[in-house]
């Protein structure tokens, strides 16, 4: 059992196994289910992630409110163009993150990861990482267990709720989870995964939750896209040997404290930030009457 990154790393090192393996073994013990049952359960989630992250690439998806949509489609076309700043893989990850977000706001089926509002980040990173570093489905499932371990540590010591901690809690957790999983899929060590998680979370600290009209659309879908890019770049940094001098557990504690300090207007109440801009208010009036 682990509740902190320090405990998790100790288990990985003493048993010489990956974070994903530790998370799976822990789940076997705590749930009483078998390994194959848990892998099947995770496969159900992976299947939904595959669908949600690809649905918007080939056709435009419009949200229930009609406010947003079609960005996954645009980015997918753009990703195929020869010369871009971010390159094909990263642009494709952006397209995929948009896709799940768009499916979510169009009342389609998604897997919360860790929340519905941040559901685009992990699928985009996992699909992109496993395309760049081709691997078995079993390893992809284990990387989802890795992501879950990082999320569990954040949930234990901070929060995953935008209403409690702002966007840094939702998209922040998702980006840290994704960075750690991406490192594992690339063959990095558990230590590197935790550095990647720490770096990714550090870069989103303080981000507020200020959804226009209270809907999971503006700016959520863009933050999902940026969360995926942030995760991939943090993973690359860690794989290159860059470390986070502030350990993962301390970054998580900082996130929790920042979340408590944020005023209520900036925690999912749609009263501050982008929601309170003239345009944000105008949209809210139009949607909510």
């Amino acid at each position: 059992m682990f509740n902190t990154a320090e405990e998790l790393l100790r288990l990985c090192q003493s048993q010489k196994i990956s974070i994903g393996r530790v998370a799976l073994e822990t789940e076997i013990k705590s749930s009483g289910s078998s390994e194959s049952e848990l892998m099947d359960k995770m496969r159900g989630i992976l299947t939904v992630m595959r669908e949600s992250s690809s649905a918007g690439l080939t056709g435009e998806i419009k949200s229930l409110s009609g406010l947003t949509g079609g960005n996954a489609y645009l980015m997918n076309i753009y990703s195929e163009e020869g010369i871009t700043y971010c390159g094909k893989a990263v642009n494709k990850a952006i397209a995929r993150a948009f896709s799940s977000s768009e499916v979510n706001s169009a009342m389609g089926r998604i897997a919360a990861a860790p929340t519905a509002g941040s559901c685009g980040i992990l699928p985009a990173v996992i699909m992109t990482a496993s395309e760049i570093f081709p691997t078995s489905d079993e390893n992809i499932l284990l990387s989802l267990f890795t992501a879950s371990a990082i999320g569990a540590i954040i949930a234990h010591s901070a929060t995953l709720s935008g209403a409690e901690g702002g966007c840094q809690a939702e998209c922040g957790a998702a980006t840290a989870m994704s960075a750690a999983a991406a490192v594992e899929l690339a063959g990095g060590t558990p230590e590197m995964s935790l550095h990647a998680g720490a770096i990714a979370l550090k870069c989103i600290l303080g981000l507020v939750c200020d959804p226009v009209a209270g809907l999971v659309e503006i700016p959520c879908s863009k933050r999902n896209a940026m969360g995926a890019v942030n995760a991939l770049s943090a993973a690359d940094m860690a794989l290159a040997g860059v470390i986070s001098l502030i350990p993962f557990d301390e970054v998580v504690t900082a996130m929790a404290k920042i979340g408590k300090t944020l005023p209520c207007e900036l925690k999912e109440t749609a009263q501050g930030g982008l929601a309170a801009t003239p345009t944000g208010r105008k949209i809210a009036k139009k949607i909510l009457g």
Binding site: I45, S105, G108
Partner: peptide, 21 residues
Amino acid sequence: MGKHFGAFDILGPVMIGPSSS
């Protein structure tokens, strides 16, 4: 805070969007 979270407390549920609540 304080409680141990399992893998499926973090990933999932599979649901129709856009909002868990």
